Every structure is written in C-alpha cells, then in structure tokens.
Computed example of a mutant assay.
Amino acid sequence: MPRMIWSELSHLQLGKYAEYLMKMEFLSYGFDVFNTEVDDKGVDFVIKSGSGKFYEMQVKSCRDLNYVFMRKDKFDINNESLILVLALFEDNKMPDVFLIPAIEWKSPNNLLKDRDYEDLKSKPEWGINLSQKNLGLLNQYSIEIMMNKFK
C-alpha cells in the first residue's frame, strides 16, 4: 500500500510516481505497455489494446485544482491516438485519474483551453483549467468511463 502523503513529494517525484502508477493501471486492464526511450515528443509511454490499437500516453499530475498545460509543439491535437492521462493527487487517498483524448482540444471550453500568448515569452499551449466549477466537465473523462473506449 502506498504511503499517500503526496504533499511531501517534490513535483518531479510526484510526476514520476504518476507515470509508473498509470503504467501499472493499464497493465491491470490487460493492455500491453511500452516505454519510450526518449521523451522529446510529449509521449511518456505507449499502450496497445487487445484489439491491436496503439495509444500514445502523456501523463500529467497535480495536487491542487489549478492549471495544467502541454506545449502545442509537443502535444498534437490532430493525433487521434494521443491521450492525456491526468492524475489528481490528494493526501491520504489514491489519485483521481482522467483520460482525455488530444482531439478534445479541437473544441475548447471552460475546462480545455487554447492559449497562444501572442507577443509574450510563453510558448503556445493547450491547457486544463481545473476548478470546482469545471469538475463536472472533467468527470466525463474519468478512467472508469474512458477505459471501455480504449479496449
């Protein structure tokens, strides 16, 4: 049983834990899991379903309801096999996990954001605006709901 005091982990430790946890989660659902040798394209690992379909997984983790983003040059919303795996951590409980297909950002809304930051230092990004108000929009992507779509 994990210790589940997530607030004591650094940002990097929490991210690495989320990545390994998600690999084990997909294995438990019967997917094959493949590591990527280099993470320069925003893909943390690849899964293969029982029907032979491959999905590229980008894992993000956070402890609070805030803003999570992926740079547009690393997260291609036209890639139908690219999935964002979002793990929300709260002390003393296992994380809530959400699977959001990249193509969902083609229709930005209060939850899924498209930010270009013209004339600013920040690079263009796709984001997730996590808030109590937006949890209803996020719930449709819960791992329990989405897992059936990937088998």
Rank of each mutant, 00 (worst) to 15 (best):
V97P: 05
D64A: 06
W105E: 05
D76S: 08
F98A: 04
W105T: 01
N92K: 07
V97D: 08
I77P: 02
E104W: 00
N66S: 14
F69M: 08
L111G: 12
K72P: 04
D76C: 11
K72Q: 15
L84N: 02
A102K: 01
S81I: 14
D64Q: 08
L82G: 01
D96T: 00
D73N: 11
K93M: 13
N79R: 15
F89D: 05
F75Y: 11
N110A: 10
S107F: 10
A102G: 07
K113Y: 10
W105R: 04
F89H: 14
C62E: 04
A102L: 01
L65D: 07
K113V: 06
P108D: 03
P95C: 15
F89C: 01
L86V: 03
I77R: 03
N78G: 11
L111R: 07
L99M: 14
P101N: 07
S107Y: 06
M70K: 03
D96E: 11
P95H: 15
K74A: 09
D76M: 06
P108W: 00
V85W: 01
L82F: 00
K93G: 06
D73A: 10
N92M: 09
F69A: 14
N110S: 13
M70I: 00
V85M: 15
K106T: 10
L65S: 03
N110Y: 11
L88M: 11
F69Y: 12
S61N: 07
I103C: 10
P101C: 07
L82I: 03
N78H: 11
F75W: 07
I103A: 08
F98E: 11
P95E: 15
F98Y: 15
E80D: 12
E80A: 11
L84F: 07
V97R: 15
D91K: 00
K113H: 11
D73C: 09
R71L: 12
E80R: 10
V85Q: 09
K113L: 11
C62F: 12
P101H: 03
Y67S: 08
P101W: 02
L99Y: 13
I103R: 14
V97F: 15
L112T: 01
V97K: 15
N79L: 13
I77H: 00
L99E: 05
F98N: 01
D76L: 12
P108L: 05
D76A: 08
K113P: 05
E80I: 09
I77C: 05
K74Q: 15
P108G: 03
D73V: 11
L86Q: 09
F89Q: 02
P101V: 04
N79E: 04
F89G: 05
S107H: 09
E90W: 01
N66T: 04
L99G: 06
V97S: 09
K106A: 04
E90V: 10
P101F: 02
F69Q: 15
K93R: 13
L65K: 14
W105M: 02
E80V: 10
D91V: 00
S81E: 06
K113F: 12
S81A: 13
F89P: 03
E80Y: 07
L82D: 00
L65G: 02
D73W: 10
M94K: 05
K113A: 10
S81N: 12
D73Q: 10
D64K: 06
C62I: 08
C62S: 08
V97N: 12
P108Y: 13
